[in-house]
Amino acid sequence: MTTAPMAPRVGLEAHMNAHKWALPKVIEELRGILGARLVAYLGGVKETRAVTDWINGKREPGSEAVKQRLRDAYQIAALLAEVEANGVVQTWFMGMNPQLDDRAPARLLRDGGPNAATEVLGAARAYIAMAS
């Protein structure tokens, strides 16, 4: 008996790339989905020039926590971008989210502590389940 090939699981490629790619590539792809202003916000900087500098290797994000936050944000954004347009993903990151007690995913990622990425990823998966 032959079995049909398994369909790739939504978000698996995003997860792999978030961990496999060098940080400048992650940030460049994240900027392509969310835009430079939102990436700067997530990275804790005010100017979008810093995002370009991160991508070009002229400087690095401030701390290991910020670097991990950017990788987490990429994974979540890329997961959502598998099923939605970039503009929808941007709006999702900035808007109040009932899965997150009406907090914006971007704000929770930036200010929410060590479990924030897990909460936001869960909300993204719930969104995808409802959108399907």
Score class of each variant (00 low, 15 high):
Gly44Glu: 15
Glu84Asn: 04
Ala50Arg: 15
Pro61Gln: 04
Glu82Leu: 14
Ala77His: 07
Ala73Gln: 02
Glu64Leu: 15
Asn86Thr: 07
Lys58Asn: 15
Ser63Glu: 13
Glu84Cys: 04
Lys58Gly: 10
Gly62Gln: 10
Asp53Pro: 03
Gly43Cys: 10
Glu60Trp: 06
Glu64Ser: 13
Arg49Gln: 15
Val66Cys: 03
Ala85Pro: 08
Glu64Asp: 12
Lys46Met: 00
Ala73Val: 10
Thr52Asp: 14
Val45Glu: 15
Arg71Phe: 09
Lys67Gln: 13
Glu82Arg: 06
Val51Ser: 12
Ser63Gln: 01
Glu60Asp: 13
Asp53Ala: 09
Ala50His: 11
Lys58Thr: 11
Asn56Cys: 02
Ala50Asn: 13
Pro61Asp: 02
Asp53Ile: 00
Asp53Gln: 15
Ile55Val: 14
Ala50Ser: 15
Asn86Cys: 09
Ala77Arg: 03
Glu60Cys: 02
Lys58Glu: 11
Ala65Trp: 11
Asn86Tyr: 13
Pro61Ala: 05
Ala78Cys: 07
Lys46Ala: 08
Arg71Lys: 04
Arg59Val: 11
Thr52Ser: 14
Val45Trp: 13
Ala81Tyr: 10
Gly57His: 01
Val66Asp: 04
Val83Ile: 09
Lys46Cys: 06
Ala50Ile: 02
Lys46His: 13
Val51Gly: 05
Lys58Leu: 11
Ala85Ile: 09
Glu84Arg: 09
Val66Pro: 00
Gly43Ala: 08
Lys58Ala: 11
Gly43Phe: 03
Gln68Val: 10
Asp53Val: 00
Leu79Gly: 01
Leu80Pro: 05
Gly43Leu: 09
Leu70Ser: 05
Leu79Trp: 08
Arg71Ser: 07
Ile76His: 06
Glu84Trp: 14
Leu80Asn: 03
Val83Thr: 14
Gln75Ile: 00
Arg49Tyr: 11
Val66Ile: 07
Arg69Trp: 04
Glu64His: 07
Ala65Met: 07
Thr52Gln: 13
Pro61Leu: 03
Glu82Val: 05
Ala73Met: 07
Gly43Tyr: 08
Asp53His: 15
Ala65Cys: 00
Glu47Ala: 15
Gly43Asn: 06
Arg49Trp: 13
Ala65Thr: 13
Ala65Ile: 10
Glu84Ile: 04
Ile76Arg: 05
Glu47Ile: 05
Ser63Val: 01
Val51Met: 11
Gly57Gln: 00
Thr48Ser: 11
Asp53Asn: 14
Arg71Gly: 13
Trp54Leu: 04
Thr52Gly: 01
Ala81Asn: 13
Glu82Gln: 15
Gly43Ser: 10
Ala65Arg: 10
Leu79Met: 13
Ala73Phe: 14
Ile76Ser: 11
Trp54Ala: 03
Ala81Arg: 14
Ala77Val: 06
Arg59Lys: 11
Gly44Arg: 14
Gln68Leu: 09
Val66Gly: 03
Val66Asn: 00
Arg59Thr: 14
Thr48Glu: 15
Ala77Gln: 12
Gly43Asp: 01
Ile55Ser: 03
Glu60Phe: 06
Lys67Leu: 07
Val83Pro: 00
Asp53Cys: 11
Thr48His: 05
Val66Thr: 15
Val66Trp: 00
Arg69Asn: 02
Ala81Thr: 12
Leu70Val: 12
Ala50Tyr: 05
Val51Tyr: 04
Gln68Ile: 03
Val45Phe: 09
Lys58Pro: 03
Glu47Cys: 02
Thr52Met: 10
Ser63Thr: 14
Ala73Asp: 09
